[in-house]
Design a protein around this nucleic acid. Structure first.
Lengths: 328, 328
DNA sequence: CCTTCATTTGGAACCGCTTCCAAAAACAGT
DNA sequence: ACTGTTTTTGGAAGCGGTTCCAAATGAAGG
């Protein structure tokens, strides 16, 4: 494998000059540049990324810490990150956490190991202690779909998303709207509850509290919540679920009962997962690609290690995707 | 940040000794080791991963080159890779290909840039020219779900998968079985066709050639193929699609016609994507996690840069997943 | 033609580690 | 005590770049 010294010898210049050519330093005369470029081409030379990193103290790579379970979300965010990273000639170092202790080991190691110039954390919650380590180690971190008071975060306006969904159902004339929410220990659930209520408030009415359920964000949760409501004698004309999976669970419950969607009951989900389109599920879409791209951009623009000031957290607006399940 | 020299000074030893302690070299007396360890702890020292890489020429990371479009497949394979990599203390460098030219730049750069000790290529086809570069650059590569004569490959037995699916339908008494295959320019399609035919041959019968369609592997392809067959007057009692997406397309066509699955027509797909479970689609599952894990293992075990000999390509058997769409 | 000033160039020093060699120390054996 | 052998140790020389300083070259002006 050719080194910079080989190139220098072949072009009959010093290594400094070759380095200058490689890095676009203007203090090189056109003819010398030509000679160097020729030598580089001839030797099929590529600078050794690691040697360069050691000298410059820049890794030219960003880390992405992502939980296994958010497949769809992760892929889309990653796509945004990748586009920017590729454009800026940066690599992506992937830290995929499948088990909880992996998260801990990664968070402990990333700041000292320094294999990356910055880290994007997706969805995972970062504790004070770890945030402090990153700040102390001066390793920039940015959170996507997660919030921490001392770290820059990109979050989606959950209240607004729920508001959109609820407004949509209200505008279709529904008043008995069931809300299958996530568990209240998640911030997202609390915000969505608020948006749900606000939509009603705008119409000057009150939602029926007995129609609000709280379950896990998965299919089973949706099924069970719907079943429980039904058995308690409730007959909502519309259902808003805080996740597409819950919506699908509810849909399955309806199927089992022979209740038609949207004829008998309208349904709106949240997330716009792949299946939503397939099932014709109206839902709330989050700007995942954009968030990924902008997170990468901020990181590469060298955001301060601990901003969380002006303009942070950055809040993104989700949008309503109307499909047939809401009965339009 | 402390360096090895700081540690050496504090422990009053040479840097060589510190390095030996760090790497578990046995030629260090217990007392010296103690002193060094104490100094390390006191300075909160961590070896600099990059400097170490430069000196040892080992990156402690493997690259994963993956196309954007194989989301589900990719995630599962990646999970296998990640488990092994994490266990072996190796990082994962992600090269996500979204546009064709990215594939080219990555393939050209990875072997010379040397940021990784080995590369796992998922699904993407590698041309001779690039394979040669990897071999020449002595960078081990391993292909998952892709085949190249000069590179070690992990492939799934497509003929067997199609055989399983077809046998299943035949055993349920179906004889008029439509086969929505992929385009014949893909190797997978040719192999699946073969398995389809073999299943019939085992029963001593011939499939109806007019019931075999060839389309893209997507939903639209499945829909169109099914529509074309239907309009040509064919009334198969069962359909085997070469991908779940095609199967779903066919399902949608049936829905539009008011034809019930599985009562009126049995349906089997291929891939076991997430939606398959949800839709109750019988399908063929490929051992993706296992392939990922074993690819990573082979790579880390330091497979020869250009084997493709004994035991390669490694062939994995898919399995049949029976759900309600096949009418069991 | 000689000075002065700006630009281009070569190459040593350095980034933080590993590795190897030779020297020192420890240990045996006589 | 001395020699021979083994183990432990220090530190120089790389790994392949970048960066900086001083030297060389070139351009401009008198």
């Amino acid at each position: 494998m050719a080194t910079i010294y080989d190139v220098a010898k072949k072009a009959e210049v010093g290594v400094g000059t070759v380095s200058r050519v490689l890095n676009g330093n203007p203090h090189v005369s056109p003819k010398t540049r030509e000679r160097v470029l020729a030598a580089i081409a001839e030797l099929d030379y590529q600078p050794h990324a690691v040697a360069r990193s050691l000298a410059t103290n820049r890794m030219n790579a960003i880390g992405v810490l992502v939980p296994y379970f958010t497949k769809h979300f992760f892929i889309e965010v990653l796509r945004g990150i990748q586009d920017v990273a590729h454009r800026e000639d940066q690599g992506i170092f992937l830290y995929n956490v499948q088990k909880h202790e992996q998260k801990e080991t990664y968070l402990a190691r990333i700041p000292v190991e320094r294999r990356v110039d910055g880290l994007i954390v997706i969805t995972l919650r970062i504790r004070e202690q770890h945030a402090a380590r990153f700040i102390k180690g001066k390793l920039p971190v940015i959170l996507v779909d997660s919030y921490n008071p001392v770290l820059p975060s990109l979050v989606v306006d959950n209240a607004y998303g729920a508001l959109l969904a609820t407004e949509h159902l209200l505008s279709l004339g529904h008043r008995k709207i069931a809300f299958i929410n996530g568990l209240m220990r998640y911030h997202a659930s609390r915000a969505r509850r608020q948006g749900f209520e606000q939509a009603f408030a705008q119409e000057g009415i009150q939602p029926e509290t007995s129609l609000i359920a709280e379950t896990e964000f998965d299919r089973q949760g949706g099924w069970q919540a719907m079943a429980a409501l039904w058995e308690a004698g409730h007959r909502p004309t519309a259902v808003f679920a805080a996740s597409d999976l819950q919506a699908i669970g509810a849909m399955e419950f309806f199927q089992g009962k022979g209740i038609r969607v949207p004829e008998d009951v309208a349904l709106v989900g949240y997330d716009d997962i792949e299946m939503a389109e397939l099932l014709g599920l109206s839902t709330i879409r989050q700007p995942m690609y954009t968030m990924g791209a902008e997170a990468a951009e901020s990181l590469l623009a060298g955001l301060p290690a601990a901003p969380a000031e002006e303009g942070w957290p950055r809040v993104y607006k989700p949008e309503l995707v109307v499909r047939k399940s809401s009965g339009c």
